[in-house]
Design a protein around this nucleic acid. Structure first.
Lengths: 212, 212
DNA sequence: GTCTATAGACTGATAGAC
DNA sequence: GTCTATCAGTCTATAGAC
């Protein structure tokens, strides 16, 4: 009970501080002060600063991944086993973008934390991301069912590019806003998702359609 | 002379070590040991660890940006003031990708350093990237000359997405290789550039052509 | 100006008492 | 499970030698 309280207090304080100020600027002493626990408690419960960050990232990432697979499942059922290509891409990038973009004022600590994780990309987080491969292969499999005759490598490039566009939009929305002088609306999440999905679908099917 | 030697020795050692082991794992003590200079010399010549990293990044980045603008200029001259869209995108992403991808064995320390900068993205580097906006606006201007009637925001989204795909390919080539089980050839730099350029051009012109 | 030796403040991690 | 005390390691700052 008391153990749980300490553990939870650390997690909450860490997420809040990391979300607000980033990983580099927040020390373990900042966290234990905010959580009102002892310094050594972090190492006792999590092992190290990196493992604390990893724990937070895994927890939040699992939620997103579950949403993605859920949307994919719905899309496949709606299509009788073969999901629309656009629906597959939407399932892949929608949950992340909806969580990370949108009106700045109403972003939760969890969302802000995930944005930091995208931007700063510290070692513990990179390690976890490298183990996401199996998860992504499910989307490749869904695409293969929809486009059984399509070149295999193209499908993987399609996933790679869709994630790239989504990720970079979360990461660097500031630069895009500055560069376009406000012409690109970064609060219109649905519009951004549709835009990335549109490009991704076109990249896979466009050349063929243009030839026809 | 002697001043130059110390300064240069620090820069060379830092670039080599950062390229090999990343920013987080290399301390200033590692650098001064490799360069055989005194610890305080780094602060004397560069001010801080962050400013040393920034100096390296700016130097290498200027070379890439010059290549980009040079390619853009050639493309505009070839088209009599209006460059082909594909040539604009190639000028934008080609230099970076040629520098960072390709056979792993023959990558220079400079190339490996820039890959690290893409992946780890420490604070001093992020600051510099945010000031690249003016440079990117030149590509937007070139696109406006080629597509004068096109929606303004679309052009910025096009640049944003092209950079996203290029950047992510440098950043996460490992994951793509694993996910595709080798089906995506990451040593074929020209092919990758062509692929990203193709998607980018299609994203801007595809919908219009499909309607026609 | 260039460089060195040294000291300082801060970090994450840990051993051992409670 | 919690805490105090302390560790070795980090970057930075400065006084002074060359």
């Amino acid at each position: 009970m008391a153990a749980d309280h300490t553990r939870t207090a650390i997690l909450e304080a860490a997420e809040r501080l990391y979300a607000a100020r980033g990983f580099a600027d927040v020390t373990m002493r900042d966290i234990v002060a905010a959580a009102d626990v002892n310094l050594a408690a972090v190492n006792y419960h999590f092992g190290s600063k990196d493992e604390l960050i990893a724990e937070l990232f895994v927890t939040r990432g699992l939620v997103t991944n579950r949403e993605r697979l859920n949307e994919l499942k719905i899309a496949e059922e709606a299509g009788g086993g073969r999901a629309e290509l656009a629906a597959i891409f939407t399932a892949l990038i929608g949950p992340t973008l909806r969580g990370c973009l949108g009106p700045e004022k109403q972003r939760s600590d969890a969302a802000r934390f995930m944005i930091r994780a995208s931007i700063e990309s510290v070692p513990p987080i990179r390690k976890i991301k490298n183990r996401e491969v199996d998860h992504l292969r499910r989307f490749a499999a869904a695409m293969r069912r929809t486009l059984p005759d399509h070149d295999e490598a193209d499908l993987f490039w399609g996933i790679h590019f869709a994630l790239a566009m989504a990720h970079q939009t979360v990461r660097d929305s500031e630069r895009l806003g500055k560069m376009s002088d406000g012409a690109c609306d970064l609060t219109d999440v649905a519009g951004i998702v549709a835009r990335i999905v549109g490009v991704s679908v076109l990249a896979l099917t466009g050349r063929a359609k243009l030839r026809a």
